[in-house]
């Protein structure tokens, strides 16, 4: 640069200093934190895929569960997949409508009153109740009186999902602008009608995606199922009576097994479970994406 003014040239470079070094170290540590998470995640996914893919086939997904000593190429996890779909499906049918209704109470009726605040707070707290406690709870109030069943498992999973659905739906309902509600009230609509015809449709994308994430979480849960459905190896199509099985329960049962075949089936089941959870998550993301684009 040619000097044009009479002023001395100014040095605006950052002098090498401890401040600058500290800043660099801090940034490097943040990146390191990310690496520390990516490595184990990568290892887990790699192991699950590598070991799971070698056993997975159509017949693995549909065949009945053999005895643990059976070699890896015998049998499959069919009953566990059926059980997971049935039990998680039933839990969803129980938890999602109730959760959305609860969120409607919090957001549309409760407003800022004390009861709504307490319920909202306790819904947050309930998300922190350990899943094993939900299992013990359903064991105490249901299994002891009516015996093991898929329905008991669905109740336990439903209890886990309920606060998650309430919280995510509540967040979505909060995003619906008040002007929309007011426009509908100004036409003389009742609150129920405003909620059902204006507010819910406006928030439906977010609610669905929140519900899908709750389903993904429930599908992977083992602890609530241990003492509610037990773990059997046969298909039980009757959800309301008799022990049942699910993917996580089978993995848990096989994980500590000394037999190579049982372990191989555990990896295959783990891959199936992870794929189901990932698909649910991706669908949820897709729904959210569409929803937010439409919202703008």
């Amino acid at each position: 640069m040619t000097v044009a003014t009479e002023q001395p040239k100014l040095d605006l470079r950052e002098p090498p200093s401890w401040r600058r070094t500290k800043n660099r170290i801090a940034t490097a540590l943040m990146v390191l934190a990310m690496v520390l998470v990516v490595i184990p995640l990568g290892l887990v996914l790699y192991t699950v895929i590598a070991r799971g893919a070698s056993v997975i086939s159509w017949s693995f997904l549909t065949s009945s569960i053999p005895v643990q000593v059976a070699p890896a190429n015998v049998g499959g996890i069919g009953p566990a997949i059926v059980g997971t779909i049935e039990i998680v499906g039933l839990a969803t049918l129980l938890a999602v409508p109730l959760g959305v209704l609860g969120a409607i109470y919090l957001n549309e009726y409760g407003g800022k009153n004390a009861l709504a605040r307490v319920i909202g707070f306790m819904a947050d707290v309930m998300t922190g109740v350990p899943s094993i406690v939900m299992g013990l709870f359903i064991f105490s109030i249901w299994v002891l009186h009516f015996g093991f069943s898929g329905f008991a498992g669905a109740l336990a999973l439903g209890c886990l999902m309920l606060p998650i659905v309430i919280r995510s739906s509540d967040e979505m309902l909060k995003l619906v602008p008040d002007s929309l509600r007011e426009a509908s009230y100004a036409l003389g609509a009742t609150r129920a009608r405003v909620t059902l015809t204006v507010v819910l449709p406006a928030a439906v994308g977010g609610i669905v995606s929140g519900a899908l994430l709750a389903v993904a979480r429930a599908a992977g849960e083992t602890a609530p199922l241990l003492f509610t459905i037990l773990t059997v190896t046969t298909v039980n199509r009757n959800l309301f009576s008799g022990a049942n099985t699910a993917l996580p329960s089978q993995i848990f049962a096989n994980a500590t097994s000394p037999y190579v075949g049982a372990q191989a089936r555990a990896w295959g089941a783990a891959l199936t479970l992870v794929v189901i959870a990932f698909i649910l998550m991706l669908v949820a993301r897709f729904v959210t994406g569409r929803f937010t684009r439409q919202g703008r």
Binding site: M1, V3, A4, T5, Q7, P8, L10, L12, R13, E14
Partner: peptide
């Protein structure tokens, strides 16, 4: 330019 130095040159912090 700020007092004769270019504010957006590469080595300016």
């Amino acid at each position: 330019h700020y007092r004769g130095a270019s504010l957006y040159s590469k080595d300016v912090s």
